[in-house]
Computed example of a mutant assay.
Amino acid sequence: MLYFDHCASTPPYDEVVQTMMEVMRSEYANPSSLHLAGTAADKLIERSRAVIASQLQTKAGSWIFTGGGTESNNLAIKGAARQYAGRGRHLITTQIEHASVYEAFAQLEQEGFRVTYLPVSESGHVTPEQVEKALTDETILVSIMHVNNEIGSVQPIGQIGSLLKRLPKVIFHVDAVQSIGKLPLQIEEWGIDLLSGSAHKLRGPKGVGYLYMRDGLSLHPLFTGGTQEFGYRAGTQNVPGIVASAKALRMSMESMEERQRRMLGLKRQLIGIIAEIPELKVNGGEPSAAHILHFSYPGMKPEVVIHMLEQHGIMASTKSACSSKDNKPSRVLLAIGASLEQASGGIRISFGDEHQERDIAELGAALRRIVGQLKPLERRLT
């Protein structure tokens, strides 16, 4: 099987699985308990917090463990907006955010906040100038993802952060779920106040997320009922998952540069193959992440292509895994100006550590065969 859906989830490192099993066996006490076993479990959490902070060059106490990237995004956005609503009720984001961000803002609109959704270029990017123009005296939060989860566009986070540094009232949140361990991040230098991540996107376990919060900030918690995670995330911590997630992050960071170079070569190879298949069209543009390539087969339902790829032993996806089961055109593709047919026929390929040039060649051969089989049926399958 060739698994090309690493944006949705990744196969965990063997060492991560082993670590998680060992901690589950030996450190099963509640980390909030006062006895020695509870204290030992709590120390593992703090050690994991320190590992993540060290790898991402921030202070250890700045990281909050959550149940995943979606929770981290919701805690950052709703927590900041509700906490600082007294300063203003205007928020800024983009039209191409992940559903966990986009829908969080939609919910805040129902609570009386005003949201500006910035449009993007055909390549899938916003500019610092757009952000600056959208700012008002009432703006309290700007949330912009680092790497888009569908088309891979990389936003100018450093430039936007430099702009917002001059405005201490405005909080800057970055969804870095698709970039941690895959692209360089300079959280403090870029002026990021809140940053979300997810362990299973970088070969860690599912069910663990993390949220960076700059010193001096406070958040209105989503959950109540305990003082865990500095009072921002009540509930017993997932000790085995947290320890395993810190290990996965460290391993991903150590191999990041080499992986970037190799995946860029694979992406270029696949772009070359798609360029030779006139029915297919690559979506988005540069700068983009090396591990994501999105293309469309306009006029063809993407699930047809996905299931035909499965018959060749190839696993791919259409868009975000959170939204892949609905039949609506991609909101991201519509935002970059794609036609309705193009936005309804997208396929996402996302690479992992295991992929080699021969795997891309096999994927390309399968795509050629599939398009050849489907072309006579295009109208009947739309």
Rank of each mutant, 00 (worst) to 15 (best):
P12V: 10
E15S: 10
E15N: 08
V17Q: 05
Q18E: 12
E22L: 13
S26G: 10
Y28E: 12
L44N: 08
I45L: 15
G61Q: 13
T66Q: 04
A76L: 05
A81G: 13
Y84L: 09
R87A: 01
R89C: 04
L91H: 01
T94K: 02
I96Y: 05
I96V: 00
E97W: 00
S100W: 04
V101A: 05
Y102M: 00
Y102T: 00
P119V: 01
S123L: 10
S123F: 04
V126A: 00
K133A: 02
S143G: 01
Q155A: 02
G161P: 09
L164N: 06
K169T: 09
V174R: 01
V177M: 03
K182N: 12
Q186D: 10
L194E: 07
G197R: 14
H200D: 06
P205K: 00
L211A: 06
D215L: 11
P221E: 02
T224A: 09
F230I: 13
Y232A: 07
R233A: 10
N238M: 07
M256T: 14
R262H: 12
I271N: 10
G272Y: 14
E276A: 14
G285Q: 01
F295V: 01
S296Q: 11
Y297H: 08
P302F: 02
V305N: 08
H307E: 14
Q311W: 14
S317D: 15
S320W: 15
S323I: 03
K325F: 12
D326P: 03
K328F: 08
P329H: 02
S344F: 02
I347C: 03
F351T: 13
D359Q: 06
I360A: 07
L363E: 01
R368K: 08
G372K: 11
L374A: 09
R380H: 00
L381Y: 12
